[in-house]
Amino acid sequence: MIRFRNVQVAGETEAGTRPILTVPDLALSEDRISVIGANGSGKSTLLKLINGLALPDTGTVDVDGLDTTAQGAAVRRRVAFVFTDPLSQLVMPTPLEDVELSLRRQYRNRTERRSAALDLLRDFGLEPLAGQSIYQLSGGERQLAALASVLAVNPSVLVLDEPSTLLDLRNTMLLRRRLASLPQQLITATHDLDLAQDSVRTLVVDNGQVVYDGEPAAAVSFYRELAAHVAGSS
């Protein structure tokens, strides 16, 4: 269970500080939640608050009772983050080494670690590419490799920031199917309104506030109207 209380995040600009995100009270317990909203509305900021990649300037965010500011390391062991660009996520030269890096804490023994890593990669259909340079993988393969590395640390919550933005239609569908089968709680920010509806609850963020919170189909039509309204009035 993720809980926001009186949260404010401010950004520095030349003109002084301005609020980037304000969330008075929010509890996230559903196992599939999506976040939609315009560019710059504050989606990424909202997601980063959940695992302490960003910290609130006022208020608190906690995960299972652990405060992201005071107990950041413990929170990050529970909440893993998937970036839009898998190249930002993969730190080792090959998928195999990257997954092994994630598994270091669980497996001290190198042989066991390697076989666990290969098992996981096989699960993702990536075993044949285990030793390839990450630069030689396709965007879809890379995103799957990044997902495998992140899942290897056994998180209970997965936060995904536009995971399908760099993918084509086929890879997006593969990713959606893969995500649907995960046991973790998933919180996904996306501009892909189909992906957004792979959820039970959708938040619409606009101008630093959660302006709609409810059933996905209704949230998507709310967002469409909002966008049409903004486009019409400018």
Binding site: N51, G52, L53, G72, A73, R76, R77, R78, V79, A80, F81, V82, F83, S88, Q89, L90, V91, L101, S102, R104, R105, S149, V150, A152, V153, P155
Partner: peptide, 10 residues
């Protein structure tokens, strides 16, 4: 950030 995203290195 990449390490923090996986709770590594802390």
């Amino acid at each position: 950030d990449a390490l923090a995203a996986r709770g590594l290195g802390e």
